[in-house]
Structure formats: C-alpha cells, structure tokens
Design a protein around this nucleic acid. Structure first.
Lengths: 223, 223
DNA sequence: ATCGAGAGTTAGACTAGTCTAACTATATAT
DNA sequence: ATATATAGTTAGACTAGTCTAACTCTCGAT
C-alpha cells in the first residue's frame, strides 16, 4: 500500500497515545497531539478505517489494527536507528535528534534501514534507552530499567531512559543536565506528584512532576 | 521561504536540463523529464516565477535565477553527500544510490548535511566523480577528467565519472561492468556516434553511443 | 508572406489534507 | 431522569499539484 507521511503520522500518534494514556484514543487527543482541528482528525480516521489500518468507532475512539501496528513498528524502527546514527556518528545531542529522525523516518527505504542497522551493529536499544524493533518488527525483551518513581530517597541511580518526544519535557531535562548516562541521587518522592533529584554533575536539586519521573528509566548504583 | 519537495524537483530538473542540453529549457523538456503533462509544468513555472526562483517567458523557455540556483546547489550538495555515505558506509552499489539520495535530499536539514560532510571528511567529489558544492554552495574546481570521446583507440584509461541519473544509461553501464574505477581500453571511436571499449575485468567489447561516452570521465593510464 | 504542425497555455475538474461553521451525541451533575 | 456542557461529526470551502479538453502561439516549409 501507498501511505502518505501524513497518514503515517496519525498512525504513529495513535500508537504513542495508546501507550501513554492507557485509555481509548479519542479524536481530541489526536487533534491536540498533531495540532490540527478535530474535523480533520475525523476525516483522516474515516480514511484509515477504510484502509483497515485502525478500528474507528465514531464518538467512541480508535485503535490500531494489526496492519496499522505493523506500519508503525517499521516507522519506530526507522526512527530509533536514525537517532542512534545521528548521536553515535554525527555527534548530535540526545535532545536534538528527535526532530530530524521524525522527518526522515518516513522517507528512508526498508533497504536503507536494514543496511543502517548492520552499520550500527544491530543495536537493540537507541541512545534514549528505547527498544528498537528487529527486522521482523518484533520488539526485543522489555527494558530492565526501573522508573524513577519507584526509588527511595537516598538511592543513587544512573539514568538509562529519558522521555524525549515532548519538546517541553525534553528541553527541561536537557536544561537541567539530566540525560542518558546522568548519575543522580533521589532526594524526595513526595505525595504531591513531585520527585526531586540531584544530578551528580551539577549538585543542584531538580524537581520533576510525577508524569515525567515515571517515564525516566534508571538503573540503581547504590541504595 | 517554504518550498515543497515537488517544487524543488522542478528546480533540480531545470538545473540539470540547462547543463545537459545547452539550450533554453522548454516546457516539454520538463514534462518529459518529470513525467507530468505540460499544463502541469506551465502552472508550476508560473508559481516558481512568482517566487523569483526562475525566469519564465511563456512560449519561450525558463531558466533559474540566482535564488533558484542556490536552492538547487543545496540539494545537489545534500544528494552527493548522501550518495557518498550510502556507498562508503552502507555498502550500496554505485548504481543503487541515486534513488535513495534523490528522495532524502529534500528532507535532511542543513545541520544534518554539515555534520555528514564532517563525518565523511569533507569530500570534494562523490563516488560517481561528480563535484560536491561546499558549505557556501560554491562548486569546487572543475573535475580534471577527460570525456571518453576524447581518447584514441588503444588508450587505456580508468573510469572516474559515470552518468547515473538516467536509469537506462545507469543500468546499461552497470550490466556491462563499467563503473567508477573500471579500467578499460578504448577500442574504436567511430564517426557514427559510437565508442567501443573493452573493460579489463570482462575483456568483452562494449558499445557506447556518443551521448553516453561523452558523459563518462576518465583518466589516462597508458596511451 | 503565409499556413499548418506541433509545442504551449488556458479552463475546468479532481484528490488529499486542511479549515470554519453548524449541528449532534455523550455523559455528568443534579 | 434530564439538562446541558463538551466532545465529536457533518457540510462546505480552500490550496497545491495533478489531469484532460480546448484553444493559441511559434516557426519552418513552401
């Protein structure tokens, strides 16, 4: 089939919203995420449903079919391999790679991706700690990282996985020198939706809302 | 300015036709090259003229303005650096790189291209022997290769530059094992628009129409 | 000098993706 | 149980890039 980059973006958005929100994906979620109006979303959902890439029930919500998921996984594979290349060989920072990869993922051929994977040594995770689907589009075993919210005050951990798709979150973390490889001490896990950490590089306390801390994966250094 | 990949393709086509035909570029040339109808070309030329990327005189022809040329040179730089990367690091064959680069050239950022050039060691020619514009979009000194048509029967030469944008020409050369680096003996330069050569790898005589031989650049080995 | 073949343009229609305005369904609070 | 705020859909319009059909210009042959 012949899918436009725009249609691919809708599928990707549905995929990530399914993952992040854990509830049925609604028209409004997509229109917010893609910054288009809701009628635009409705008409695209009609067309994707027509092509059996999503199951769309008007007024209820939408989810990806197996075919839709397959399409997205190829894009995710392209994206994460591109990010790996950009960081490891073109010296991009972790916070800068997303936008470039987000564009190119739609245009590289499957052949390109296969060869790039070989060039990179068939990596299983990208530099943000996210898993890279293999050439059969199977996800590797789930990442062994533990969310920052699961640690206790005083634990020292190394950041292995950072959320980076949301520019605001990405820039906040980047500005406070929290990225892949950062070592930090958990300072406080408050009950008012806040986790406070102290990166060893800056020694300055950084506050993180729970919804961000929950998406930061880390490996324990000392308890 | 915000130029669509499609508009960019028209500019590129005009650039290459100016170079190849040496006469004013006409609507029909473009419609043949891009495989669209002539009214489509007319309307795009109106729009490009509007944006001062070309000078278009109805019924007469079209040529690039300085702004149009600059746009194209950035694309040419993107394209040739991408081809270099594909061949040198992803192990593509010289005859396979064009299509991938032709697509990606529209989507890589200037930042990407700058970093890729650094990664590749700031090359001045691509693997087809074509010149790569520098970061200020200046073309390096003209290539020192001599067209195959300029040699005498008996000369032994190494191929340094091959035409590869036309799929038919490219596939013909590739099928007869003539590519960058091929060593061959010029057998006959006939007056009926034909050059015959014998690649040292195959020892089989290959006939080339003049319009192809003229675009093959070579360096002499023995006279 | 003129005529006609062929190249080129104008007119009008179609698609995908977008919008705004108007209308409808859902679901929550009473 | 119902009203109403909010989310969602339908209707209709617009743009870029494409097409076909119809018309017009150019230039070389006479």
């Amino acid at each position: 089939m012949d899918l436009s980059p725009i249609a691919e973006d809708y599928l990707k958005t549905i995929y990530h919203l399914e993952d992040e929100n854990g509830r049925p994906v609604r028209t409004g979620d997509i229109s917010t995420a893609l910054d288009v109006t809701s009628p635009t979303v409705t008409s695209m959902l009609d067309s994707l449903d027509e092509r059996e890439l999503v199951d769309y029930t008007p007024y209820k919500g939408v989810e990806l079919t197996d075919r839709g998921t397959e399409t997205v996984l190829q894009l995710v594979r392209n994206h994460r391999l591109l990010e790996t290349f950009l960081m490891e060989h073109l010296d991009y920072s972790w916070s800068a790679v997303h936008d470039e990869a987000d564009c190119l993922e739609h245009y590289v051929s499957d052949e390109f991706t296969r060869r790039l994977a070989t060039f990179l040594g068939e990596p299983v995770t990208d530099p943000h700690g996210d898993l890279i689907p293999d050439s059969d589009l199977k996800m590797p075993e789930k990442s062994p990282y533990t969310a920052l919210t699961e640690y206790e005050p005083g634990d020292t951990v190394t950041v292995e996985q950072v959320p980076h798709r949301d520019p605001d979150v990405r820039d906040y973390l980047s500005r406070h020198r929290i990225g892949p490889g950062t070592q930090l001490v958990v300072d406080e896990v408050s009950s008012i939706d806040l986790v406070t950490v102290v990166p060893s590089t800056t020694e300055t306390s950084v506050a993180l809302p729970t919804h961000v801390a929950r998406r930061i994966g880390a490996r324990v250094v000392t308890k």
